[in-house]
Design a protein around this nucleic acid. Structure first.
Lengths: 231, 231
DNA sequence: TAAATAATTGTCGAAAATACAATAATTAAT
DNA sequence: ATTAATTATTGTATTTTCGACAATTATTTA
């Protein structure tokens, strides 16, 4: 085995890639940016940046999120790290991937210094991406799907007030399978949803009732047992 | 916002911390090492090491695992990364934590260059550790518990041939709750366990039948549906 | 007013979960 | 050899959930 000096280890950089997922028109979408610099100029990519030497990983992820969306206080989930020595052409860069779930309509995502153009792309139609970003994206989408089964994070993507059908369609899209309406409603009976008097507007059929989800209610009612969102 | 040169980003190091979990005497245990060097000399810690500049993360985790146990071909699970700027007193070191499940009896864990002494410690009794290792350990144990619900990884810790009671007790210890024997056996009916003719030896009561788990059988019988290990 | 559309609720048999009881096999003590 | 002790293993009965499907309701548009 070879030996190198202690200081020779301190020659790497790390980056944070921050995937944003949202839900619109019945599809879960990821925010991609078109790179405006080398390497991989003009490729679609996951938004990300190098982490400053005195910055925590979560901090960097929040910074990127804010640059893109103006949003703060969004729940960030760390996904995985990727460290193949050759994954970045300009040096050793290990990346830590994060994801956050947002309401697409709540803000205007804007291109930033490193990006030309941005786009919300359905997670089932991701194009070829820069670097190893297809691997990162696929891995993170899998993790998202796992978490959707176990934690009430879907509500971070749904509008503040949503119909039960919208709720159901989110799961149908995520797992690419259709679900029985009546049975879906039975399965979610234990989730404390707040029913509003208000109804859907502007639809050309019987309007659905609107519901919302309260995280604090959820914590209170849950007790020690954890909910299931296995659909 | 401040600006620094591109090259100033390449001043960090990476480490991999590799948690080993095993099961013996009814307890899930983690392998800890007593550090034999500064910083945190003489503290208990999670085994880990810096990653070489041209080494992949998984490769480094496998190397550490082999140094400690001589084992190769053990399934490694990446857990999380920790990157607080001050987490290491000697420089910026971001660490990626992994865990692996092993059969404690299958090998003799040996101290290595960086360790004096090693010890298998029940995961419910972890002492104060070096660096931010208590945070890493706690986070990783949570992840382990989650995965035990969803993937058939418990069998990597159980002996090659095990009794159903041992199997059950693993879950009882993990989630710190007792389970009904009869109902446990019904819940695991769908798992393709191979029953042996052989029975327990040297016990002072009715000996239990021995079972084993075949990963390939599991994959075959499973089809597309994923098993549940929610106990 | 009727047709169309989607929301909402109900039914019923099958399957799974839960609580608890009964039986079987083995060792150790008498 | 008999019995108590201990743990393995199987069974039963009740309740709850699942899954497929049918029926009903509210609203818009033709």
């Amino acid at each position: 085995m070879y030996r190198i000096n202690f200081s020779d280890f301190f020659t790497s950089a790390f980056s944070v890639d921050c995937m944003l997922f949202g839900y619109s028109q019945g599809q879960i979408k990821a925010l991609l940016i078109k790179r405006a610099m080398e390497p991989y100029n003009n490729f679609w990519a996951i938004p990300g940046d190098l982490v400053y030497p005195d910055e925590d990983l979560d901090e960097a992820a929040n910074r990127i999120l804010k640059d893109l969306t103006g949003l703060t206080d969004v729940g960030l989930h760390q996904a995985q790290s990727f460290g193949h020595p050759k994954r970045h052409p300009q040096g050793r860069v290990v990346t830590v991937s994060y994801f956050a779930l947002v309401r697409i309509e709540d803000f205007n995502a804007k291109a930033s210094s490193w990006a030309d153009e941005i786009s919300w792309v359905p997670i089932h139609d991701i194009p070829v991406l820069a670097f190893d970003h297809n691997l990162i994206m696929a891995t993170t989408i899998e993790l998202l799907k796992q978490k959707l089964h176990v934690e009430p994070i879907c509500f971070d993507m749904l509008p503040d007030r949503f119909t039960l059908s919208e709720f159901q369609q989110l799961y149908e899209y995520a797992y690419n399978q259709s679900l029985d309406k009546a049975n879906f409603r039975k399965k979610i009976k234990h989730i404390p949803l707040l029913a509003h008097d208000e109804k859907q507007q502007m639809v050309k059929h019987r309007p659905a009732k609107l519901f919302s989800f309260s995280h604090t209610e959820y914590i209170n009612k849950q007790g020690l047992k954890d909910y299931q969102f296995k659909m």
